[in-house]
Design a protein around this nucleic acid. Sequence first.
DNA 1: AAGTAAATTTTTTTT
DNA 2: AAATTTACTT
Length: 801
Amino acid sequence: MEILSSLNPKQLEAVKQTEGPLLVLAGAGSGKTRVITVRVAYLIAEKGIAPYNILAVTFTNKAAAEMRERINELLKGQKLPSAPLISTFHSLCVRILRQDIVELGEGYTQSFTIYDTDDSLKVIKASLKDSGLDPKMFPPRQILYAISNSKNKGEDYEMFASKVDYNDEKRAAFARVYKLYVERLRNANALDFDDLMIKTVSLLRKSPEVREKYNDRYKYILIDEYQDTNPLQFALVKYLTEKQQNICVVGDDAQSIYGFRQADIRNILDFEDHFPKAKTVLLEQNYRSTQTILDVADAVIANNIGRKEKKLWTDNPAGQNITYYQAFDGDQEAKFTASKIYDHQRMNSKEKIAILYRTNAQSRVFEEALRKMRIGYNIVGGFSFYERAEVRDIIAYLKLTLNPFDDIALLRVINKPARGLGKKTLDELALRSKNLGVTLWETIATITDEKYEGQLALTPRAKKSLLLFKGILEGLQKLLGDSSKSEKPVSDLVIAAIENTGYSLMLKSENSEEAETRLGNLEELVNAAVDYDQQEKNGLRDFIDHAALSSDTDKYDRNAPVTLMTVHSAKGLEFPVVFLVGLEDGIFPHARSINDPKELEEERRLAYVAITRAEKTLYVTHSTRRRVYGEEMAAEPSQFLNEMPLDLIEDVSRGNSWLSFAKSAGARENRYTAKALRGENKKAKARSTYSGETYNTPDAINAFFNKKKGEASGKPRKDSPAPKEKSGFEKLKEFAAKEKPSQAEPPAGKFLPGAHVRHAKYGKGLVLRREGSGDNTKLTVSFPGFGQKKLIEKFAKLENA
DNA sequence: AAGTAAATTTTTTTT
DNA sequence: AAATTTACTT
């Protein structure tokens, strides 16, 4: 078979081992996707498996689309009776639930609505209001996060509540809100993202018939990025493979970066225990990157303790050293990046370039710099098309048409455009709905009924408006009802939701530039619907599901010359040239992960993912000052920079940089280290993991940075004399030395923004803001786990940490 | 009721 | 710095 000729022996083994459980441990760039796609093609073309018996599951739509494309490529020219299902976990669940959710017996119907995070947050807020709890004391985001965590562990509300400590007021409040939240979703016939997984798993657990049905349907199952599966996803996999066991999972424990979503690395590490007859294939040859890039990645990941040893190797040439740049501030960093990109494009306009950062918020400056230099770019993440307010409004109308019990959608559009239904009317409506125990939609139907005439606190105007709204929605429903019979295009319904509701009239009469843009966006939505009508024909519901599950990461366009995105969204992709920016303590690794060794290891895996995206050229940059919440703060180089072999890094910074200093201070030792990394010198390798003495003393670095700061700003920062700030490396060293507490009591008045401090009650924290002077000096300090606290410096008894 | 100004909060990462 | 929420006019 022709398609097999492109594979190496290991890859071939993974493709041909079609029966029974198979674990493919695939290092970065080892042709993981190739194995999956060829395997699917092989099953169809060689083994004669019907395509609809094959299921491949990914985490993102982007990965699914890519896979679909490549499989089609492999099978082009062949007429297939059906297509294999290439789906994300979530859309697979939607597919199953849309068919069989009634079997679950929880009262949900096939018309269930999907709530996104924003919708969920609104439900939390409403539930807080219902229970009379103060959102200031119990932040809705935190509650939502807690609920999601609990759900992803496979818990339900009762389990969460039963684990709450009697004295823990906060958790107790969370539990109360949790309960209301679940009830509200249930009443609205709505499922949140996590519910999609949960309800599917419960359904399979509950009904042997349904289980059997899907076991028979999907005879061959493949799971991509298996290291990122959480307990729920594992349960789903278990149920789906109960009968046939033809399961192939592919992943790399070194690239597990979704612990925050309860992904459990043990799923991949213990695969052989979960599926006793499993075979394992290791893919260790890297086809993507130069030896140098692999060495850098290896040196960083070697600092993780909890990891499976894997020896990634490549036939590729050593390639050029990676490039390092230290910028004065974020703007300079962006400017440097843009001008380097300009140079690259002049030399080779075909090479695709990526700028990778830790958080979406970092994208701004880079966008500006690129725009200034007229460099075309594509940005992944941030705002997705479906997240724009006007698009969401129209979607809300459509969701409401499909499921009028969706209170969140109803509240979103009941007064858009303005129909004179303000706070007062809505409060009345909410109250009635609560008393009657029915949804808002049903409440409207009830209280606008003739027989309640006179006994309601509703002005005739409000009543008229409610009737108007009701009429509009019924109009849409009627249109939809007709369409299910006559196959009316989705685009017609979208247009109706824009026109018949008065929405477009509202925008047109606004006569502003902004309104024009919005109308343009709605036009795009209509176009999307037209496209949809041409490609698929599964009706409005499927179109809306699509919108709900399509996320910002789906905007990746492989043809864009320059792509900006987070490291998370870059997973699975590769680029000839990569800029890894913002390598600073507190950003990458992120401040919220720095105190927990486990989370720090995940950050390091993330850094590993970032580095291994690069094929030939890798730039690593950081800046000495960084804006956080609009305030300039001192920034220190990331510890991950410290973990890279210094002699593989070329410094192109202007003037003295952290790197030039580090190199000269520890030149001899570091050459030793880097050489050892390539070879087998175990003793030297151990030194490359941070043991405290790699090349420097903290005081020297401190002196260096204080000097830098002075030079840079022309004068010392805000309050002089200069503070006794400790460097990130010093913190690191302390960490390595098992957190030896610092004894030096600093003189009062020395805590500047950016300083790391220790508080008797809250532990380690980061000073964010400093106000006032003398005895009245107030500090805003961020304590992980406790949030931001305002402290009077004089009484806070802070220590340097 | 609706629009505007002021105050307050926000950033991890994603389906 | 930007976005969201609240307070204040009209």
